[in-house]
Design a protein around this nucleic acid. Structure first.
Lengths: 175, 175
DNA sequence: TATTGTTATACTCTATAACTATA
DNA sequence: TATAGTTATAGAGTATAACAATA
């Protein structure tokens, strides 16, 4: 977005915080701000790789989720729950993916209230190609050392469990 | 947003990735996905605290930045660079903060092209109150262990430097 | 009554392009 | 020519509320 700054703005903010009498929360503030900025950088990289495919990250995530479902189909509310996004966001994403011919909606066989989203053949191909591009251009050169990747998975796993994302224990120490 | 899931969807995705022949990138993928989700959780907490003040996170960040500037004022393009956001985002944020009486625009004394954003007295008070609320309600109970906070600062500091955010060395090992 | 999904609406932030004014 | 900032416009995601249909 711009040229490198001469100094780390987050480290500066941390020092300002300490100087302002918030010494005990300066470090968590800096960590959280760094998460925000890192997410922004990574999202930009991902969206950049997905753009040639006509996909956004939100729509890619839905395609990837469907590609891992046994039948390639999921109820709308299941998708909303698993992706942890608002139901209207799923409606929106499915609308656009359906226009692109990557998914189709179909009625649930037994529950008349629910709508199934299903991957088309084109959608499955697209998911595979986009996944390959992301792996080759983003994940395989993430900019994190292997050790740090493990740290992040552990730290954020605990955080998300404590934040109420999920319930299982899923012992990470044995993986 | 919803009830806890019975299982960690990111750990599941990591296993799916490994099963699909992306064993070498499954861990970075999981780490990056976890960053995305964690950012979403933290941003929601922050916006929730700021809402009573009529502030969004982007506008709060601008107020906080100005409150640390010596004179309480910065050129628009400096603010854009330090916050690492697009110039139009700064224009937008300043428009709204100005309407709320928290900042004012003024011409630069020597460079007729540049506009200064300056904190008003109300803006400075608001920055202090919002900062106190964030420290008390978010940062002081971040959900990260102290050790992990240090890990995150270090890991993301290296990452951001390598991503071109800033140039300084800023030896973290001595802090 | 509760649940599922859609629609309408609104409000973020972000980005590009065109433009003015100044250096 | 280059820089600073604004405007207009567009697109994205997210959220609330109201609603229809079904359980």
């Amino acid at each position: 977005m711009a040229n490198p700054l001469p100094r780390d703005p987050i480290a500066d903010a941390q020092r300002n915080w300490e100087r302002s009498g918030w010494g005990n929360t300066a470090a968590p503030m800096a960590a959280i701000t760094a998460i925000m900025r890192t997410q922004q950088i990574l999202l930009a990289r991902i969206e950049n790789v997905l753009k040639p495919f006509g996909l956004t990250f939100a729509r890619y995530e839905l395609l990837a989720l469907l590609s891992f479902a046994r039948t390639g189909a999921l109820p709308m509310n299941k998708a909303s729950a698993l992706l942890q996004v608002h139901p209207t966001s799923v409606t929106n994403a499915v609308d656009r993916l359906e226009k692109s011919g990557l998914v189709v909606r179909s009625p649930h066989p037994t529950d008349g209230r629910t709508t199934l989203v299903e991957l088309t053949t084109e959608g499955r191909t697209m998911a595979k190609r986009a996944t390959a591009a992301l792996n080759n251009e983003v994940f395989s050169q993430s900019g994190f050392a292997d050790d740090d990747v493990e740290h992040l998975i552990r730290i954020f796993g605990s955080f998300r469990r404590r934040a109420g994302d999920f319930n299982d224990v899923d012992d990470l120490s044995t993986r």
